[in-house]
Design a protein around this nucleic acid. Structure first.
Lengths: 231, 231
DNA sequence: TAGTGGTCTAGACCACTAT
DNA sequence: TAGTGGTCTAGACCACTAA
């Protein structure tokens, strides 16, 4: 057996009561103090359990108003955003990558404005193809702000992909991510070895270190890719 | 000003030290006890801050081994999974939907097995088209376990979509979600008013109440849809 | 204004694990 | 086995807000 102890047991019991409709959606549940008395523990322990459930979107809490079972469960799903190499290795496949192009260029206006840079600023433009078991897995198109690279690019890009080198070298404090779908352009189709127009899963990330933009990267995954999580 | 106080201030300071490379990736940081002494607070307060950062993937903690700055920041992104109606309304558009079909049917084997049901079990099959400002927004294909519906389907489906009625009626305790991309089938293209083969953003959810499967639903979003979050 | 959640404290014991 | 994080306690004060 491994019955949860402590705050996890309380979280489980609260979930059970919600599931069995002892506490219906929208209903007010007892105060932390009352629950602590019922479960014979400190209020902080109940607080920990209810706080986690509120974070997960199961409960809605407001001071003075008390705690309610969420009516519209805006469930929160937590996604892991792994480094590509580890993602491939985690599937039991062999990882490799190939740098297709590395240039200095003035980015499109949309890129510059997304990064909050003046139009006309020069960025590094890198395009990389990542492989799983020697099969194309991911096409990466990256714009990189040279100002955040104290020593320029690493000399040896054989060992480590740009992304991995970046996260070791330039810690970022803030970023945003979006997911969408797009039809493969002729170029992308050729790189990923799929039919032109195939539906690709697209991840776009922008990252910042404080006020300074670091990079904007677009990842195009071949057909069959799935991002998966639990709620 | 609104300088953070308490554990949030500690979290901010730790992030600052990581960002400024006072604590490099992979480095061991002081123990909770030491930090509590430095910041002049209780160890529990430091623990709260470091726990949040570990949850976010910024730190890696192990008993006895101490706390390290994550080398491969498997950053965690938190996504909100809203009810479709609220998603549309949240964009400032008018929401409506149309139930295209409602039948009892034996689902494909893949569906039955994903739900852990015996092959041959009969499920409800619902197909719904959701609109934003009278434009097709989302095509929904849902299999529903009738065993979890104590009173059958609601008589009036004009007010509330199936999904919204479900979450009010059958609280679920567990689910999983996956995101992918797919080319629009001829049917989907017709419903969503896009070209056949257009890249659609696909969300698939399976939900459970305890041991009982509730529903498996596939949502196909038209081109232009983006799921967005911050890290 | 009073009720409720949010957080902090000082101390304690325990669980895990590097050595 | 000893060091470190994980959690709990009993009590306190504060922040927010419904009534």
């Amino acid at each position: 057996m491994s019955a949860p102890q402590g705050w996890e047991a309380i979280r489980a019991e609260v979930l059970r009561r919600i599931d069995s409709r002892v506490w219906a959606p929208g209903a007010l549940i007892p105060t932390e103090e009352d629950l602590a008395a019922e479960f014979g523990c400190a209020r902080a322990t109940v607080n920990r359990a209810l706080r986690e459930l509120a974070l997960a979107g199961v409960l809605e809490r407001r001071r003075k108003a008390g705690t309610r079972v969420a009516t519209h469960p805006v469930r929160k799903a937590t996604l892991d955003i792994p480094v590509t190499r580890l993602e491939v290795v985690g599937r039991g496949q062999v990882y490799s990558f190939r740098l297709l192009a590395q240039t200095k260029a003035v980015p499109p206006l949309a890129v510059a404005s997304r990064l909050g840079l003046a139009p006309g600023a020069t960025l590094l433009h890198l395009r990389t193809l990542h492989f799983a078991d020697a099969k194309p897995f991911l096409y990466e198109d990256r714009w990189l702000n040279p100002a955040v690279l104290p020593e320029g690019l690493p000399p040896d890009l054989a060992e480590m992909s740009i992304n991995e080198w970046l996260v070791k070298t330039v810690a970022y404090t803030y970023g945003d991510i979006s997911f969408s779908a797009a039809n493969a352009s002729p170029d992308e189709a050729a790189y990923l070895d799929v039919a032109p127009g195939a539906a690709l899963f697209i991840t776009e990330r922008t990252t910042w270190a404080g006020e300074a933009p670091i990079t904007l990267v677009r990842l195009a995954y071949g057909p069959g890719y799935r991002l998966h999580t639990q709620v």
